[in-house]
Design a protein around this nucleic acid. Structure first.
Lengths: 349, 349
DNA sequence: CTGAAAGCGCTTACAG
DNA sequence: CTGAAAGCGCTTACAG
């Protein structure tokens, strides 16, 4: 493996000049630049990143903006853990990762955190654009400062984010429908339960439902699919609401044998079913967190769709790091897997 | 973050002495050793791995031993690709990865490759112990030379491998059974097809079958499960054999509506079914390679079990690298995921 | 037992 | 436009 010194010697220049060419820095004549570039290409020169990082003393800082979680039962626990993990791995390169958090149900906390980020003036930002309006407005402020940003978990179309990491929601709903159809018999009805507690990222929830509906539209158009929308915002209220309304639905249509929960709250439906007379109902939901795992293992939940949230957080920081450090251009979209999780493989994901 | 220099200054010694203490090298008086250790602890000293790697010129070499594949339709293509990928990532640390290959069906080629590895005398070995007997005998030669080794994809119990990366075969068979039961009706019979072309790693195949059988034993003991074993060794022969024998089986028992192929050859069964009158048969197999994907997408194969083979190869070299370079002790087992793959999520894994 | 010095490969501030 | 030199933090061969 050639070094800068080798290249310099062969080109009859100093190592400083090779370095300038290597990084497209100004102050090199076209002639020597070409000569050196030819040699770099000829030897497929790869710079020693350790030596580079050691000598390069400017420190990069990356800001992340994600919902705060205080328990490992919530979805965002895993992306946040992924961010921490990669952070510990790359801090030896002198990169600083500053984590900012907001309350998932409070747009104002999102804005406040965002302004703290602007004050920090980081080299790049990884954010979960949970609140559509605030997000589209605030990222403009990043653009005027030339701070690149990456969307995590939730995508907003038509923005100038350099990348997006997350699941194809439509496709995951499509797959959920297929699974539910497989495990129901042809005469069973289906119920979709939406918890509107999550006023945010309703777009991914909606895409999941669209995928789900489209599957049945194309493969099984006569299937009866009902909807239950729960609108309260406090958790305790929701549970009461769910219990009352779900009970009604199941009494009104005793043919309902399959429930699809296009959010991470399948455990709530599972809890109800477990304590009810409708134990044979099949239930499919999203996200592998503690509460859902509990009901998956006792078979109240039959399937969960996983999107490898830990890897999302990890990957998000990683691509920013590689862009800043190695000038690597990320893909525009990193599709997270659509994993089918059951009692039998949940311990192996 | 303190540096060796800071510590040295505070202890009134040279950096060389701090380095000696840091690495437990001999030649330091007990008194200064203690003084320095106290300081290292006080400041929670963490050495700069980049500077360390840069200065440390001894080069590590890692040998890998896996089956050779010449097409991306075969299982080992992906682990080999994972090995290449991590190799390209770590060669900047001066690590050399030497890949040795053998013919999957020829124990002698395995032994020959193994002897080439011994000649190279690497710092560690990653191997797929495809041939049980040869493997257990040959790894003894690594042990006497104090060369640590890691098993890839196939485990052999009771050996001194420092780690194993692969899937829990029993559990994956168990899960396959659950899925097949879900998509069949109660009166359908099941057929297990084993291709003995693969005389090797029969143990994982056997474990898959055991898991499969045990699921039905416990959840559905009266289910009729038949077996078809194909023994020829040439591919063309197998296809003929399969076609003849499978035809017979399906004529003899028209109730067979589900087929389980506990190896990567589900595509062969799919090909037969596609051209036959039994198109409604459900088929579940292993491994997501080109041929299987083709039949998964046209719905001749219903489910495939994936074990993320790329990551297996990648992880295998990674843990060896981290052990050699950062002295990190690997886990004894790295369980690969048991992924359920369908037409709908195959493009997102 | 201990220190001074060279060196790993790259980057940069300075001088010309 | 270009080079010589110092320095990033650690390791090591050598001298004492």
């Amino acid at each position: 493996m050639k070094t800068i010194k080798d290249i310099a010697k062969e080109a009859n220049v100093s190592t400083g000049t090779v370095d300038r060419v290597l990084h497209n820095r100004p102050g090199v004549s076209e002639k020597t630049r070409e000569k050196i570039q030819a040699l770099l290409k000829k030897y497929k020169f790869q710079k020693n990143v350790m030596a580079s990082a050691l000598a390069y003393k400017k420190k990069f800082s990356i800001a992340t903006l994600t919902p705060l979680t205080n328990s490992n039962e919530e979805f965002w626990h895993e992306p946040n853990r992924g961010i921490q993990t990669i952070f510990n791995e790359i801090k030896k390169y002198g990169v600083e990762v500053h984590c900012f958090y907001f309350n998932h149900f409070d747009p104002e906390s999102f804005q406040n955190a965002f302004h703290n980020i602007l004050e920090l003036n980081p080299n790049a930002v990884l954010l979960a654009p949970v609140f559509h309006k605030s997000s589209t407005k605030l990222i403009k402020l990043l653009e005027v400062r030339n701070i690149p940003y990456v969307f995590l978990n939730i995508d907003i179309q038509g923005q100038k984010n350099i990348s997006f990491i997350g699941q194809n929601s439509y496709q995951s709903g499509f797959l959920s429908a297929k699974i539910l159809k497989l495990i129901l018999s042809d005469k069973d009805d289906i119920l979709i339960i939406r918890f509107r507690k999550n006023i945010d990222h309703h777009e991914s929830i909606q895409s999941r439902v669209n995928g789900f509906m489209d599957y049945f539209k194309s493969k099984d158009p006569s299937r009866i699919i009902r909807s239950l929308n729960l609108k309260s915002s406090a958790t305790s209220e929701i549970e009461l609401n769910l219990s009352k309304n779900l009970n009604n639905e199941l009494i009104n249509d005793p043919l309902i044998k399959g429930i699809f929960v296009p959010s991470s709250y399948a455990h709530m439906a599972a809890q109800f079913i477990e304590g009810s007379e409708w134990k044979d109902i099949k239930l499919i939901g999203y996200d592998v967190h503690e509460k859902n795992i509990k009901y998956l293992k006792n078979e109240s939940i039959d399937f969960l769709i996983d999107q490898e949230p830990f890897e999302q957080g990890y990957k998000g920081v990683e691509i920013i790091f590689e862009k800043l450090f190695f000038n690597k251009t990320p893909k525009k979209i990193y599709n997270s897997p659509i994993n089918i999780v059951t009692k039998e493989n949940v311990d192996y994901i």
